[in-house]
Design a protein around this nucleic acid. Structure first.
Lengths: 341, 341
DNA sequence: CTGAAAGCGCTTACAG
DNA sequence: CTGAAAGCGCTTACAG
């Protein structure tokens, strides 16, 4: 392994000063075109690469974005929520396009994640991805904002939340899927998924759902909603509670596909058929949802677009351009699990 | 946003020299315990974080690993092969455990990826993930090795390949699944998936498959193998070729689950039933495989373990400890798509 | 146990 | 258009 070349080595070979080498490699028009090309050629020959640590240190900028995936402590030890996983591709690509590197890390919600990446100058800004307890989360966001950290998060739009967010219209999604179910002639409904303020995405989906039912006079007094975080297990367990009740609703609306998968699993162990006896719908359109039996009717959030927006918005913030929240429309995906007319 | 504190600020407040601050923050036993604690407390109060660029530059080490995902140019623009995606979780976690940061990037196989990350001191080593044309790939690996770059790749064990690899026994996996199918009474077989040397993983699976057939005298003269890269589309298209043939085999063995998914899709458009008329098996045990209709019999490669091994092996290599190839056993997962006795 | 000093490899005013 | 010099914020011999 040869010693790594430095800009001084190149300067020596080219017979110019190191300053000129640095300028030439950064394509500065200040440097004579011919010497610039000569220097660049030498750099190529030597397989020279600018030392990022040195250049970042000097420029006080890293051209790196940190992606923090935080999770509920309950989720599996090495699995990432498939919904967030599906954003990773476009985030990575958007970063590459913009000339940023991407640092990925998990973050336990309980951890002390004071924007370590930005504070240590390893990253210029942070993307936050994850469903977690919003109450705890909020405090940390406020802290980040106070420190002047650049960050963008995926999540619910909220008038007074700290920082900027990119999200999908959860209220509209919940309403649309419910309207569709009502149009299909279903009359009795149940909802599985957390619907408190600590899970604002799910809560918004639930509100949309509830309002659609109300509008059609279908929100009966004994309507049931079961709490569940976004895992298959939680969906399975909530289903047991629901199955212990006297009568099954026409439809089980789930706050996420993962929950719906758990519901389907629970129903498979009963004599009830989906969608004949009971319809089931999910939310997120994770890859597996199309392959479930029956294929899940769900609500798609455009993850490709989301990833791009997350990155471009963060970069704007880093460059001190004005940024604002963005709410993407949700898109109903009708498959078999909701039944048909 | 307050100015970021430096070690000099802390030194000033603590009334010691900056060297002492640096030592104290690195927990050096050289520093008096009491002053050490006092300095650490001040650092905490100031929300001070060591500047990574400066410390990396000085130490000539970044404590960062770069993960390069390279792909066939044909694959979708923002999707990552789900098999590799499933390693990401354990890789991320293993890095965190070892105190390394993780840089993630895509790499087009055609690109000029001369270990830029390590050369520029942004990373101490590289993990390579992807199925690609091995012929082109090999040359680049040799180049990396020559440059003294630390890298570990996921892939086929190969006596004379450059660098170190962590992989799963593809030959054994191909053989085991085929033996199982033979035990089920199936007599005629076809294989879908590339089986040339430019795709060594698939080739090894094919060899195991072929040897199992030979052993039982079932490798007939007109045995058919259809090329396909690892995508659903390729599997679908290869199926069309197969369906145009005179007679359908008892089993279609696919070199990957993605291919098998395409095969199932193609068969769904015919009157043939799986597994009654034709059995189908995949390879990889990607999340979707369990949800396919019928659920895919497949071969599992332990991705959690793989991710951990990739990281720990690379770190050993970075620390100049001896490392060697590791071949994990493959594990047959029997589900419905292979039929039963 | 502590401090003064050198230096990691760049970028960028400043001067010419 | 080019060079000499300062300095980004650390770590770590070296000296005491």
């Amino acid at each position: 392994m040869k010693e790594k070349a430095t800009s001084f080595d190149i300067a020596h070979i080219a017979g110019v000063s190191q300053s000129t080498v640095s300028r030439a490699l950064n394509n500065s028009p200040l440097v004579n075109l011919e010497t610039r090309q000569r220097i660049q050629q030498i750099a190529r020959d030597l397989n020279y690469k600018v030392d990022k640590n040195a250049s970042n240190l000097r420029k006080q900028k890293s051209n790196t974005i940190a992606l923090l995936l935080f999770e509920d402590p309950t989720s599996d030890d090495s699995m990432i929520n498939p919904f967030f996983l599906s954003m990773l591709g476009s985030i990575t690509r958007a970063c590459a396009t913009a000339g940023y590197d991407l640092l990925v890390s998990f973050q336990n919600l309980d951890d002390d994640w004071h924007a370590e990446f930005e504070d240590s100058n390893k990253a210029d800004g942070i993307i936050l991805l994850g469903y977690g307890d919003y109450t705890a989360y909020r405090t940390k966001l406020a802290q980040l904002e106070e420190q002047g950290t650049h960050f963008v998060r995926w999540g619910a739009h909220d008038e007074n939340h700290p920082g900027v967010s990119i999200g999908c219209d959860n209220y509209q999604g919940g309403r649309d899927v419910t309207e569709h179910l009502i149009g299909l002639g279903h009359k009795t409904f149940a909802f599985i998924g957390d619907a408190q303020s600590h899970a604002p995405e799910f809560q918004a989906r639930f509100m949309g759902y509830q309002d659609a039912l109300k509008k059609h006079g279908l929100l009966c007094a004994n309507h049931r909603q079961f709490n569940a975080i976004s895992t298959e297990d939680a969906g399975y367990e909530a289903s047991q509670l629901l199955l212990n009740e006297d009568n099954l609703p026409d439809v089980i609306v789930c706050a996420s596909d993962l929950i719906a998968l758990g519901v389907l699993k629970a129903l498979r162990q009963t004599s009830f058929r989906v969608p004949e006896d009971v319809a089931v719908v999910g939310y997120d359109n994770i890859p597996v949802s199309a392959f479930a039996t029956p294929a899940l009717t769900t609500v798609r959030q455009n993850t490709k677009r989301a990833g791009e927006l997350l990155v471009t918005t963060l970069i704007k913030a880093i460059n001190k351009e004005p940024v604002e929240d963005y709410l993407m429309p949700a898109e109903l995906i009708v498959r078999q699990s909701c039944g048909s007319k």
